[in-house]
Design a protein around this nucleic acid. Structure first.
Lengths: 204, 204
DNA sequence: TGCCCATGGTGAACAGTGTTCATTATTTCA
DNA sequence: TGAAATAATGAACACTGTTCACCATGGGCA
């Protein structure tokens, strides 16, 4: 019964080849410029073949988004589990990592967090949602640690985590999308946002 | 010389007809679904005619974005000039109006604030930038009022205004783009974000 | 009034897009 | 080796933004 396994291995291999080609195009050119035909050409397959391994273009790029989620998840987990020091400092570091991660992978960040609704009209299948939730959950845990340590007032961890996420996402997406706006020095602005958020949840 | 004027009036009229058609499609369907051919058909012109009045599709939709900026500007100005009461309350109301405005016009908000960089690769011509700056400037004035009134510590108004904008933009764009995510009740989340931002700039 | 020219609108055409599907080639199993 | 199943193809469809040779209509002039 080694044949079926080999087939499955090959199938997964080709899928990966397609993803590699797609990623290479995507990180350089972004969503619009990454066409099925270009992906197929780079992976040395015909356009039709892509549809044997992915439902449509959206599915290909969603797979790239998943890769990003997993890497973000790892970084956040690393910070969450570093249990030394003030949990508030850890929380702040987590938010900073989130922002820096987004700025390092702007196209990926747009793909996952900024695509307008008409493009994600399909209601975000539960599996991917679980993935996104996992990444977000690290933030919730860090907020809970702060509450337990008495660094911030006790309250609804979901509420506070979502507010913090909004803040971090806000500066990340603004810096990515509105690069024409005359922002003050980027590092100082990020510092100020983090300062505001942390101070904001400390004093209630 | 009435002829040239009539010609100019007609030209402006047709331009407006095109914009009206584009707006109607855009608010219902969003960026992708609003095609030049659909606009032309709705305005009862041929596709080529659009290009006699606008440089390209991007220019048509940018004009819609300008309309939005002007209306946002009016609302912000109304709040800024209402000089009664605590300036901090006014600032908070301004931020809330910004968020609500975005949620009322999600496609417009995406168009102006969330389009990924590959689509706005042209470096945001200075006139439009001035427009955006005008809207933002109201926020700066409100922050300065707070400083003068002693409601918040004295600091760089640009820095604080940009941080506040990031926060307001964050929750607005998240709620628009990630409508699949299990957010807590929207009103409560917005309140929490505003609370966090205001408390954050008060204490430092 | 009759003519000419310039302006404005047209719609076919170009190069590209995502997606589908009948046809072909390859591989597996009897 | 022959039959059946599977995989890959690339042409075709319906769309996209954009350009441009063509034509008609209206204004100025003799």
């Amino acid at each position: 019964m080694g044949i079926a396994e080999r087939r499955a291995r090959e199938k997964a291999g080709i899928r990966q080849e397609i993803l590699d080609a797609a990623r290479e195009l995507f990180v350089k050119e972004g969503y619009e410029a990454t066409s099925i035909r270009k992906i197929a050409h780079k992976a040395e397959y015909s356009p039709g073949t892509i549809y044997l391994y992915f439902e449509d273009k959206q599915a290909v790029l969603e797979a790239l988004g998943d890769e990003m989620f997993r890497r973000l998840d790892q970084r956040m987990q690393a910070i969450e589990q570093d249990s030394w020091g003030d949990p508030l400092v850890r929380l702040r570091r987590g938010l900073r990592v989130y922002i820096e991660f987004g700025l390092e992978h702007p196209h990926h960040y747009c793909l996952v967090f900024m695509l307008p609704p008409e493009q994600l009209s399909r209601p975000m299948d539960p599996l991917k949602l679980q993935n996104a939730m996992a990444s977000f959950q690290h933030l919730v845990v860090m907020v809970q640690s702060c509450m337990q340590a008495g660094s911030i007032p006790v309250g609804d961890p979901q509420e506070i985590s979502q507010a913090l996420w909004a803040g971090a996402h806000g500066i990340t997406s603004l810096l990515i999308a509105k690069c024409g706006f005359p922002f003050i020095e980027q590092g100082r602005l990020i510092d100020r946002v983090l300062e505001t958020l942390i101070e904001g949840i400390r004093n209630k």
